[in-house]
């Protein structure tokens, strides 16, 4: 659904606003790296803008500290519709190694509706480009939840309901 929305609403280019909500700067550096001529995300029409009011996409890096929650909510409201949120880095995806710290909320999707997730610590620039390609419909996602068993015919084993963990 988001893919369709994406194709319909952004026929030309994505202007991104990059925000750091408690990241260690590793992810921010990789985001800047992606914009250099070597990786050149600008060939997909991606442009870093200085104000959320000009942006279509919010790039969120970091595990979201408690301090930044109101600011992040205001930032999200400031981006005009239709908007996308991309979580970059293990921190923004799931809280990273700080997922249960006292000052951390734990993941961007506990505050915002996140559309695309790019895990990695930091994700290498190619991984971010792959995320961009997934967002633009140029590539397919390559990851799926895995359920493996050594014993195939054990009657009482019930797999963990992954969906219920995230509802």
């Amino acid at each position: 659904m988001f893919k369709k929305l994406c194709e319909k609403s952004f026929p030309k280019s994505l202007w991104v606003y990059h925000c750091n909500v408690g990241a260690c700067n590793g992810c921010d550096i990789e985001v800047i790296d992606v914009l250099t001529p070597y990786y050149d995300a600008e060939r997909f029409g991606i442009k870093l803008v200085a104000s959320p009011r000009h942006a279509d996409v919010l790039l969120v890096c970091g595990p979201v500290t408690r301090q930044v929650v109101p600011a992040l909510k205001r930032l999200y409201e400031a981006v005009p519709d239709p908007k996308l949120v991309i979580a970059i880095g293990s921190c923004a995806v799931g809280g990273g190694i700080w997922f249960d710290s006292y000052n951390i909320v734990g993941g961007a999707d506990t505050i915002l509706p996140v559309d695309y997730y790019i895990p990695g610590c930091p994700p290498r620039p190619e991984a971010i480009l792959h995320g961009v390609a997934v967002a633009l419909g140029l590539a397919e996602k390559e990851i799926e939840s895995v359920h493996l068993k050594q014993l195939l015919d054990r009657p009482e084993s019930v797999p963990v309901e992954v969906e219920s963990l995230y509802s």
Binding site: V93, G94, G107, D109, Y117, P119, K141, I143, E144, S145, V146, H147, L148, K149, Q150, P159, V160, V162, E163, L165, Y166
Partner: peptide, 8 residues
Amino acid sequence: REDMVAEC
């Protein structure tokens, strides 16, 4: 994020 869950 549930895509990254691996269970065995």
